[in-house]
C-alpha cells in the first residue's frame, strides 16, 4: 500500500447526466474537464469514459479557437478572473 491512488476513482459525469453530444458553446459542460489553468484534464483524474473524453476534447479545442476559453493561463498571461468566463 505504499503507492496509494492520489485521486478517488470517479465515474464519468457525462454518462451520469446522459449527455449525448457536447456542444462547444456550452461551457458548463466543459468545465468538469478543465484544470484551473484551462488544460484538458486527463481521463485518469476525471474518470470520464473514453467516448465522452473524446467528445469533450473536440469541444474544448473548438471553444479555444473561438475565444470562449483561453488556450493558456500562466504568469505572463494572467486572466483576472478565470471563472468569470465560465458561468
Amino acid at each position: 500500500m505504499a503507492e496509494r491512488r492520489k485521486f478517488k476513482k470517479r465515474y464519468c459525469r457525462y454518462c451520469e447526466q446522459k449527455v449525448e453530444f457536447i456542444d462547444y458553446k456550452d461551457l458548463n459542460l466543459l468545465k468538469f474537464s478543465l484544470s484551473e489553468r484551462f488544460k484538458i484534464m486527463p481521463r485518469r483524474l476525471t474518470g470520464n469514459c473514453k467516448r465522452h473524453q473524446e467528445m469533450v476534447t473536440v469541444a474544448i479545442k473548438r471553444a479555444r479557437q473561438t475565444a470562449l476559453i483561453p488556450y493558456v493561463v500562466d504568469r505572463k498571461n494572467v486572466v483576472d478572473n478565470p471563472f468569470e468566463l465560465i458561468r
Binding site: 458553446k25 479555444r64 475565444a67 470562449l68 476559453i69 483561453p70 488556450y71 498571461n77 468569470e84
Partner: peptide
C-alpha cells in the same frame, strides 16, 4: 445572438 462577450484572450 449571443451578444457582447469578453474574449478569453485578446484578438
Amino acid at each position: 445572438d449571443m451578444g457582447m462577450r469578453k474574449l478569453a484572450y485578446p484578438v
